[in-house]
Amino acid sequence: MFSLESGSGFWNPILWVLIFFIAFLLFYGIRGFGKSTYKKDTDQTKAFLSGNQEPSAEVMHVKASNLYWGFTTSMKTVYTELRKMHTGNASDYVLWFVIILACLFLIMGVM
């Protein structure tokens, strides 16, 4: 019931949700074994940086452009090409259109 057949397999979201729910219950139970002395908003929960003052939010803020720095650096050749492709020039947009038109004309014309 409620399963999605693809011809070679199936996908049942209800079953998946049930399993997820059971896993969540298990997780919750395990969580209950934790320390009972833990209290929120006391010194316990503060970050401890070798006794230094916690830096302000602006300093701690990692900018979005710095995320995945490693990935973009390792794929540098790909990204330079991709950036070169996106010129932002309206004429180039039309040029890409004409290029695809020409390619498909050639393919279909030969066939």
Partner: peptide
């Protein structure tokens, strides 16, 4: 100039 009107790129 169409080459200078491209603040939106990449």
């Amino acid at each position: 100039d169409v080459r200078k009107i491209r603040r939106l790129k990449e």
